[in-house]
Simulated assay, not measured.
Amino acid sequence: MKIITVGALKGGVGKTNFTFNLAGYLSIKENKKILLIDLDPQGNLTQCLQLDVFESLAMNMFINQGKNIKELILKTEINNLDIVPTNIGMSSLEVKLFNEISRETKLMKYINKNKDYLSNKYDYILIDTNPSLNITNINAYAVADSIILVSDNSVHSLRALDIVGNMWEQISLDLEIDNNIKAVILNNFDTFSISKDFIKEIKESNLKTITIPQEIRKKQVFKASEITGIPVIKILKKDENPYFNIVDELEQKGVL
């Protein structure tokens, strides 16, 4: 079982859409068993899967460590795909964790405590985060075997990649863990010159070795997949679907 956290410091880059469609590809195309963990208080990933929950089950992983993991997991209508859902109630977690001892490793301890059950049941855990580097997300980054950062083609997103990379490098040193940022996904791209300039810029940066060459274009991946709960693996033909190449490249980098 591999744990992969999907992150971004800038909002609106399509991070949740990517997480949803990657999970859909792995569960449907490759028949892998996936557990999603939604750590964004907006609950967009939970809503992608057409679920409406009355409490943040994910918050129990931080503040109720004796909770049985089986009580937190919901099945979805997609075969092989389960989720630990959340909702706006999770917005109170930061305050609850503020004075906790070892607050940055709460999620790691909970998952390690339940590792036998999880590793026997799932091939991958995919964790969706909110666009920040708060205590909740530090937990999500620390527990991951690999972190995938998602970027659109704006200058603000490029700066955010640089900032989160530098911040996490220092935090990982403080936590005495490896810097586990393994890939950058180029999402929501178009054919205009700004995209070409962005790709040129990123290829000249220190992120060039971990950037996945296959970008995801706006016209290829529909936001409707979030609304309808249908991942693009069910919508697009192979030659139109960037996830075929992306998954191959993530496998080559050892992320998957």
Rank of each mutant, 00 (worst) to 15 (best):
M59T: 12
N139C: 04
E71Q: 15
V53C: 15
K70E: 14
E94H: 02
S91R: 12
L35T: 04
L51H: 01
L22E: 07
D116F: 12
L45E: 09
T46R: 07
D128V: 02
P85H: 13
E71I: 06
D128L: 06
L39K: 09
I73K: 05
E30I: 09
P131R: 11
G24A: 08
A58G: 09
L93M: 04
L57M: 15
L93G: 02
V84D: 01
K33F: 11
K113R: 15
I34K: 02
R103H: 01
A58N: 03
N87S: 03
L107S: 10
K121I: 11
G43Y: 09
S56L: 05
K106Y: 08
L49T: 08
S119N: 12
I127H: 00
L51Y: 01
T46E: 11
N114S: 07
T46S: 13
L51F: 08
F98M: 06
T129P: 03
T105A: 08
V84H: 01
Y117E: 06
I34H: 05
M61Y: 04
T136L: 12
L81V: 03
N64T: 04
P131E: 11
D123F: 10
L93P: 02
E55F: 13
L35Y: 10
N31C: 00
K32V: 05
D40A: 12
Q50S: 14
L45D: 08
I63A: 06
Y122C: 09
I88Q: 10
P41N: 09
K113A: 03
L118Y: 06
P41D: 09
E100G: 00
L81P: 03
N112L: 12
G24I: 02
E100V: 10
I83S: 07
Y124L: 05
L36A: 10
N120Q: 15
Y141G: 01
N60C: 08
K33I: 11
E94M: 07
V84K: 01
K75R: 14
S56N: 07
K32W: 04
T46K: 06
V53K: 13
S27N: 01
F98W: 03
L107P: 08
T46L: 11
N87A: 08
E71T: 13
I78C: 01
L26W: 06
L107E: 05
T76Q: 12
E104N: 11
L107V: 01
K113E: 02
A58Y: 06
N134K: 10
Q65P: 05
L49D: 10
N68G: 08
E71M: 09
D116R: 07
Q65C: 01
G66D: 14
K121F: 10
L118N: 08
K121R: 15
G89D: 13
V95H: 12
N134E: 11
Q50D: 15
D38W: 00
M59F: 11
Y25R: 05
I88K: 13
I101Q: 06
S27G: 07
I88L: 12
D123K: 08
N139D: 04
V53W: 13
T76S: 12
V84Y: 03
N137R: 05
L93D: 00
M61E: 01
